[in-house]
Amino acid sequence: MTGRATWWKTAIGLVLTALMLFPVYWMINVSFTRDRDMRKSPPDWFPVHGTVAGYRAVVDQQLPHLGTSLFIGAGTVVLTLLVSAPAGYSMAKLRPRGAGVLGFVLLIAQMVPGIIMAMGFYSIYLSLGVLDNPVGLVVADSTIAVPFGVLVFAAFMTGIPDELLQAATIDGAGRLRIFWSIVLPVSRNAIVTVSLFSFLWAWSDFVFASTLDGGGDRRPITLGIYHYIGNNDQQWNAIMATAVVASIPATALLIIAQRYVAAGVTAGAVKD
């Protein structure tokens, strides 16, 4: 009965999803299109004469940039977790005076436009002589994720029952021990959510990359695509193939960790 009542909704849903994902399909389609079919009018709706030339160009030219982006993403995750997990624990469970103000500061910090942070970082890195350095990008990229991370950890850890932590105190565990052996293992979901988003944001970052990393071999994949567009306006299959490869982490994470993604999107916006 339900099947008959809802099949048309499923049909509408499929059509809407297809419309929404059409640009993604088009990116994939163009990435397999031959150079000489690129400016055909009307364009081919399917890659009938498919070619992997674009992907070969990715392997030849973009691999180092993918490596840099992986390094920056991983570094950002580590830095974000190191800074935000203890802070979340303190705000949720130890509640020192002034924790409310800190929460407020973190909310506001999330709203500072990236381009302004980029200008400040640029002037600092220039005087320190650390421009064009992936480690500098790790620090800059983590500023997108740290306020979010603290707020997610604090919200999650508030839900850990006090009895659990008190029992450990009675058994003689210190705060550090409690944090390491009880709070962190219990907060696995929050750790996954924060790691996932800090990785994605660092991987996708363009503002910091384009201001703090002028060029060279160690630039991340987002700049790889950007310079591709600037340098060879003809090879759109290579540009789109790089775009497809750059989209793999987002897609993989969505498939593997779908519920964490939804949790991260609504964190802060909706009270549970």
């Binding site: 999803t17 991987w203 987002t222 750059a246 989209s247 969505l254 939804a262």
Partner: peptide, 12 residues
């Protein structure tokens, strides 16, 4: 699946 556009790198 509707989340895909939001998760893609903006340059993509």
């Amino acid at each position: 699946l509707f989340l895909v556009p939001w998760l893609l790198p903006l340059i993509v």
